[in-house]
């Protein structure tokens, strides 16, 4: 395939996915998989799953991370830049326009009433997200994650501890438990 054609397809695919997909990363990623694995056939299923896993291990928006990895896989660093641009351009343009409309109409009585109603909706969406995520942690039935969750909640809300400290400590706990698990598996292997 010609380079120019490759870049164009990469840009167009990520741009349209970002432009017309509501609901953020968890909705975009499966559509990306469909596009690049099934429709274009550029990446095989297993490799795509690995790319998604890598994307979720890095900070930042999952949609950006995954599209970046697809671009990188297809055309190296320039490909990654093309797909990132394709992914961030639609929200950048849409939100810029919205920001100006918002500033112009925020004080309008009806707009204010609509936004006031939506506040309760947004609160419900977040509570629902937290409930679903929290349930998944509890269902693991592991002691350490539950202690981390409760401790972080108390530290964050009651003691207003800086978020970066909370993340750092829980990352260290995660690294330690993983190391202990790896060593534990090795010991078992040796015993056999």
């Amino acid at each position: 395939m010609e380079k120019k054609e490759l870049y164009t397809t990469l840009f167009r695919s990520t741009f349209f996915l970002s432009m017309f997909t509501f609901g953020g990363g968890y909705v975009i990623v499966p559509l990306m998989e469909k596009k690049f694995v099934k429709e274009l056939g550029w990446i095989n299923e297993d490799e795509m799953l690995n790319l998604i896993a890598v994307g979720q291990s890095a900070p930042g928006p999952i949609a950006v991370n995954t599209s970046l990895l697809v671009g990188y896989r297809m055309a190296g660093v320039p490909g990654a830049l093309v797909t990132v641009l394709g992914t961030i351009l639609p929200p950048l343009v849409i939100m810029t326009v919205l920001a100006y409309i918002y500033m112009a109409v925020r004080d309008n009585a009806i707009v204010n009433n609509v936004l006031l109603g939506m506040q309760a909706g947004v609160a419900a969406i977040i509570v629902n997200v937290v409930y679903n995520m929290g349930k998944r942690i509890v269902q693991q039935k592991k002691v350490v994650p539950m202690i981390v969750m409760v401790a972080a909640l108390v530290a964050g809300i009651v003691f207003q501890v800086n978020i970066l400290w909370l993340l750092l400590v829980s990352a260290l706990i995660g690294a330690l438990t993983t190391l202990i698990e790896i060593v534990g598996k090795k010991d078992k292997g040796d015993a056999k």
Binding site: S57, V130, A152, L153
Partner: peptide, 15 residues
């Protein structure tokens, strides 16, 4: 493993 360890803290922070 680090990301797994972060998950419960992230849930608490979003809460």
């Amino acid at each position: 493993g680090v990301v797994q360890g972060l998950r419960p803290a992230v849930v608490a922070l979003i809460a």
